[in-house]
């Protein structure tokens, strides 16, 4: 009897320790991050850490800064000419906005999947090997292996293996999005950023991509924006609720959806606004 209690105690201690370790393994640390488009401030003092090898969902109403935030994580936001920012975003301990940090290096480690599938008007094969080619891999054999591996990981291989030379635009929307995921996996990133990857897709394709995300999180850290509460609840480990450019709440998904701390979070996830 005594033994079991002791064991239990030890067990809980161990799990607590694991938990602490887990929380310290953050791939991104965002501190006091502000961002403006011209005169309009889009993000206000974001403090957030993104755990490694977990799925972090970002939810919030349209125009709340979700996309801006996720695009800041791989500096795609800089494609907007009028953008200004301060504060720090640390990836793997380094501030990605420091002048000597190379954006190409960041984007080699951080892949991105966009809201609308955006394959290149090239063959399926050429789409997948675009990234590795860009990074200087030229050997045909290696590229072919990369293509096969990535397409398999993206659960698209069986559907396209006989027509790799065909134009990617011939694929359906769901297939195109999985091709974009495969293209992103081909650069073997550590983090995958997904900006509403299923919003333009039908339920079947959505299901496939959700399943995919579940499989991918074993090896990748994933940040996913979604407008679909059920999707966030189903696939993520952590959820952050954005509102008006601020993080209202950031917690374990189970906690956030069952016991939201903030009234606004509760209103949003129960569909009372947004």
């Amino acid at each position: 009897m005594m033994n079991t209690v002791k064991d239990n105690k030890q067990l809980s201690l161990v799990s607590l320790k694991e938990k602490v370790q887990e929380e310290t393994k953050a791939i991104y640390a965002v501190e006091k991050f502000n961002l403006w488009y011209g005169e309009n401030q889009a993000l206000y003092g974001i403090d957030m850490s993104i755990p490694m090898n977990k799925v972090t969902a970002i939810i919030g109403p349209s125009g709340c800064g979700k996309s801006t935030f996720i695009k800041a994580l791989n500096r795609m936001v800089e494609l907007v000419p009028s953008v200004r920012m301060n504060g720090t975003v640390k990836y793997d301990g380094e501030n990605i906005f420091s002048p000597k940090y190379k954006v190409e290096e960041l984007r080699t480690n951080v892949g991105m999947v966009f809201q609308h599938p955006n394959p290149f008007p090239k063959s399926i094969y050429e789409n997948v090997v675009y990234g590795p080619r860009t990074h200087g891999i030229k050997k045909k054999k290696i590229l072919e292996e990369i293509a096969e591996k990535s397409l398999k990981e993206a659960a698209l291989w069986d559907e396209v293996k006989d027509r790799l030379d065909e134009n990617a635009f011939g694929l359906s929307g769901g297939q195109q999005q999985r091709l974009c995921i495969a293209r992103c996996l081909a650069i073997e990133p550590d983090v995958i950023l997904m900006d509403e990857p299923t919003s333009a897709l039908d339920p079947v394709s959505t299901g496939k991509i959700e399943e995919l995300v579940q499989n991918l999180k074993k090896r990748y850290s994933i940040v996913i924006i979604t407008h679909n509460m059920q999707q966030a609840a189903r696939i993520s480990d952590k959820t952050a609720f954005f509102l008006n450019g601020q993080v209202v709440e950031h917690a374990d998904t189970a906690t956030l959806f069952s016991h939201p701390e903030d009234k606004r979070t509760e209103d949003y996830i129960t569909g009372r606004f947004g």
């Binding site: 791989n74 795609m76 494609l79 190409e104 290096e105 960041l106 984007r107 080699t108 892949g111 991105m112 966009f114 609308h116 955006n118 394959p119 290149f120 008007p121 090239k122 675009y130 990234g131 080619r133 860009t134 990074h135 974009c180 293209r183 992103c184 650069i187």
Partner: peptide, 27 residues
């Protein structure tokens, strides 16, 4: 050429010149 094509290329760590040569010019 739609913006999404540039995004796709830049998001993969391509440089500006690589994007021009391999995405912009062919299109």
């Amino acid at each position: 050429i739609p913006n999404s094509q540039y995004e796709a290329s830049y998001a993969m760590g391509a440089t500006k010149w690589q994007t021009i040569r391999r995405v912009v010019l062919p299109a």
